[in-house]
Nucleic acid binder design. Structure first.
Lengths: 238, 238
DNA sequence: CGCTTGGTGTTATCGTCGATGACATGGATA
DNA sequence: TATCCATGTCATCGACGATAACACCAAGCG
């Protein structure tokens, strides 16, 4: 086993198990069975070690995901890319934080690769004339929103318990950068109906308590609100 | 001058000038003219000191912005809130990173207050029947996207040079959570809300049976429909 | 073969950091 | 006046990132 590789693997292991999201060079060198100066000769400094580790973890995850090849519809790839990004963040929160929250002094290659993959999908969409903004602008909008959602899910899971959040923000951004698909009228009608239901439930939910005179008992109100919330919160495909 | 206040001000000063975004307790105690243990007695630990400092900086910024009072259009307030959030991040990047990137073990009050202000505006919109999702969901969507944009602008300014990015993402999210404005904005809010309420009840009433999968038992459906009919048929203004 | 050279790893140590125990001081209170 | 608590200081600890100095060893070359 390559010394460099075993150090990186030890770092990845410790990082994944670290509650604080940090790792000491001493712990790494001990786990890898070497002395500290080895790390500094191979990686320059701690930041370099972490950067190499993040790239390693990212490559591993991406490799296991690359089985899902490019579909013929770039929109599908765009959605899959977003979901994959979010899933990686949840699967490797500490590595993800290092990747985007940037305690590192220089950007990991993984962050640039994520951006590259995203831009490539967007350029395919642009070639089909389905983008309403430049691929660059679209890439920035998608990437910033995606990292925002992912970091929130990671660092404040209690505040963001909703499983649909990522998909909702995803579709919000996608609708903003994409031209509306011309066909699929039936599908659009379905979505519109579903949307109207949720909007109606939301509207009612916010005003049930203010009916005057109040036609419901408190218990009735509570039950009604619970049902309305269920309708308002029901997930919706694009 | 209060010792606690002068320590916080010294910390804020050092934090603003710190290239790394970090501050040592030694530097703080020296700048404030006290010894280290004072910090630990007043703030518990370094995290507590930073949290107090973030709250202080945020309050200062918010105070200078509170001159812009609530307008009569909550949508204007929603946009202003987003822009204000982004502007704060750019004006106080280190404080902002502490606020949302969370090296802190517990959340600063400032982060919760930002969320509170946002939710309040969204609830005003919901009462006017202009939200297509629950205020909670809307708040999460707006907050995550906004922090994502702000963190990207702060930590990767070279990758995100576009000045329009924040506004583009802002409007993308707002379009996704808001109903398209139907008529003129001159409609009286109360009447519109009342109309919207009855219309919402009618809309829901006609589709309760068509939910797939059906989330309610037949008995629940029956009761829900009875209540909705009551709301839909109510003629009294609120 | 014997000598050099460069890659690899070790030992010992530095300066900084967050944190804390033990002690001093000074004013309010009983 | 005696007591007590709030406030602050001095001295120090253990963990950390980082580095200088040295040890080993196989490859290349006269």
């Amino acid at each position: 086993m390559d010394t460099r590789s075993s150090i990186i693997e030890a770092t990845a292991e410790l990082l994944a198990r670290s509650p604080s999201g940090d790792v000491s060079t001493r712990a790494v060198s001990e786990a890898a069975g070497v002395q500290q100066p080895v790390l500094y000769r191979l990686f320059g400094d701690k930041s370099g070690l972490l950067r190499a580790t993040v790239d390693y973890v990212w490559d591993q995850y991406l490799g296991s995901k690359r089985a899902a090849e490019k579909s013929d519809d770039p929109l599908e790839d765009l959605r899959a890319g977003w979901d994959s990004h979010t899933a990686f963040a949840l699967a490797h929160p500490n590595a993800y934080k290092l990747m985007f929250s940037s305690a590192l002094d220089s950007e990991p290659e993984a962050a640039e690769e994520a951006m590259r993959i995203l831009r490539e999908v967007l350029e395919r969409l642009a070639k089909q004339g389905r983008l309403r903004v430049t691929p660059d602008m679209a890439a920035r909008m998608v990437m910033t929103a995606n990292t925002g959602v992912a970091l929130a899910l990671i660092t404040r899971p209690r505040l963001y318990p909703d499983q649909n959040l990522s998909v909702m923000v995803r579709d919000a951004i996608h609708r903003a950068i994409l031209l509306a698909p011309e066909g699929t009228a039936a599908h659009a009608a379905d979505a519109a109906a579903h949307d109207a239901r949720r909007a109606a439930a939301t509207t009612l939910l916010s005003s049930v308590d203010e009916f005057t005179p109040q036609p419901f008992t408190p218990a009735e109100s509570a039950l009604l609100k619970q049902w309305l919330a269920q309708i308002a919160g029901s997930g919706q495909p694009s």
